[in-house]
Design a protein around this nucleic acid. Structure first.
Lengths: 337, 337
DNA sequence: TTGAAAGCGCTAACAC
DNA sequence: GTGTTAGCGCTTTCAA
């Protein structure tokens, strides 16, 4: 396939390449008729500007990169997908390039965040899937393009944090369980290197404390956001500690594993033991009479992140934190009275 | 941020830019010591080759594009995500660039497939999410880079089709229902413009015919792969046609909607009415005593597609169709004896 | 309103 | 083993 170049169009049109460039880029100093003629010709010749050429000529396209750490083969909660499509659509709506990047622990060692940005010529960066322990978290000061993190607090005030108020959401969820009359509430958390887990646990503890209740260290377990692990931990927990009458889970997936354990132990979800999840994944409403859960909108998060970074690139917007809405959705697995 | 260029490195090293280029690209005609010195210096100077410059110089990076049509805010089945991560990992493993592209009906009109490929300088293309009616389906002959379609038969023999054998999978699933003693099997299909739907329906009909059973036109409904639509259609269908004793659904999501309808009508899934789904989404095992379903591995499909296109780019591989494995997973919603 | 010429960062012939 | 030079496709002064 021989690419049509601006030179071909110029030759065919009988003008200079400068004129073609100007015509195609809508510069004012071109005769309207010439412009029209050139545009039509270019179209007919299937001319597509060479992006590399444009970049070299000093007119590089702006591009927002979405960097996803630790991209897994599946995404049961749909979080990664939602964020991805949100960013993608925001970029589309604003007419800016979008590219997807991935990293993992190994590549974080081999290549600095700065080099990654340089290599991809990024104008803006959005990061998701990072843990507190990740190397890139210490390299934020090195990059000088607008940057946003999803679900992760960053120390750098230039970096935008996109998230729901996880602490308050957890507080609300646990408070609801307390209002349902439950007092022996255990928590099935995710992981100690996930910032959202820290925040949700903090909200859980705050709600318990506000009700004057102690939290036994044994009543908080980390299931690494996995349903099978959650099943096993809860299965044991409920036997060791039969007093438990409610579970607050840091994800719907873990809640599902927990519910399965509850039923396998001959207890009933929603009566013997109340369960609240987190996320509101698409099938949450079908499970166990409907899973009561904290809904968050990942698509929206992605979209907000994309829009915010675009705004920063264009020089507006300044906030350091952008809180997205959440909502406690009450269904059968935990319902008052 | 001022970018370090090859010129800077050359100046600093006291050699020509040619030598730097050769050293960094591991050409043999460079003194090993010079090479080492240059490499270290480049590293220290945080030098990152400008991709546009490389392209202009005639050394363009190869890149595989994954074009997803109609990217939705959510992906309940996880199909798109699985494909995406599969392609992504295949590209990573082969050291080739990966980029994500999207299209929709409107953009298919505004920009030809060829122009899209040209614009992104693609070396290879993988398409997913297309329907029989899509414009790009008629433009496959125009592109001259290796191309693969996922879950869509293409007329062009140069295009690789990546899919499971949907017809046979459906045949197997329905045959299983027949072996369970069910004879009045209705089908909840997806859509008439989805190629997989056509194939699955054909397999369903073939299995029924092989058992000497007629299929009433009323016993095949299209729910557009949506759980709510499936719910409504099944709710009505079961009342109009109380003889139905089994449902074959073209997706788990629709099966879930169907099951809900069944239960809302006071019947029992897995006894009164057997239900078989399609996909085996992560939570299928938790629903209705476990959803019996046809498992397909989207991650694998994506990976196979990525690998195959890479192979074609490198000049190996020739097949037109690449069948991925599927498997009937029997659980509570439809189980023999 | 148009065009000639320089230059972006890099690679690749070819000469030394 | 190393350097000189040309050129990739484009944009952008600046002169006409």
């Amino acid at each position: 396939m021989v690419r049509t170049t601006i030179r071909d169009v110029a030759r065919q049109a009988g003008v200079s390449i400068t004129t073609v460039s100007k015509a195609l880029n809508d510069y004012s100093d071109v005769n309207p008729e010439t412009r029209k003629r050139i545009k039509e010709l270019a179209e007919k010749m299937n001319y597509v500007p060479n992006a590399a050429g444009r970049t070299m000529g000093g007119k590089a396209d702006k591009v927002i990169g979405l960097l996803i750490n630790d991209l897994k083969p599946t995404d049961p909660s749909g979080a990664v997908y939602g964020i991805l499509s949100g960013v993608c659509h925001a970029c589309q709506d604003n007419g800016i390039e979008f590219i997807l990047l991935t990293s993992d622990i190994l590549r974080q060692q081999q290549e600095t965040l700065k080099v990654l940005c340089l290599k991809k010529q990024l104008t803006g960066l959005i990061c998701s899937g990072f843990r507190i322990s990740d190397r890139y978290m210490d390299q934020l000061a090195d990059i000088d393009i607008p940057c946003a993190f999803i679900d992760m607090r960053t120390p750098d005030s230039r970096v935008l944090d996109i998230t729901i108020d996880n602490q308050r959401a957890a507080f609300d969820a646990v408070s609801y369980l307390l209002r349902c009359g439950r007092k022996n509430i255990a928590m099935v958390n995710g992981s100690t290197v996930a910032d959202v887990s820290l925040l949700r646990e903090s909200g859980y503890r705050a709600a318990m404390a506000a009700a004057g209740l102690e939290v036994s260290p044994l009543r908080v377990v980390n299931a690494n956001f996995d349903d099978i692990v959650a099943y096993n931990l809860v299965w044991r927990l409920l036997q060791d500690d039969p007093g438990i009458d409610a579970l607050f889970c840091a994800s719907d997936l873990m809640a599902i594993g927990a519910c399965r354990a509850i039923e396998d132990l001959g207890k009933r979800v929603g009566s013997d033991i109340f369960v609240v999840g987190f996320d509101d994944i698409p099938i949450a409403k079908y499970l166990y009479g409907g899973l009561t859960t904290v809904r968050q909108d990942f698509y929206r998060m992605g979209y907000v992140a994309g829009q915010a970074i675009y705004d920063r690139i264009e020089g507006t917007s300044k906030a350091h934190t952008d809180d997205v809405m959440y909502e406690l959705v009450v269904r059968g697995s935990a319902r008052a009275g």
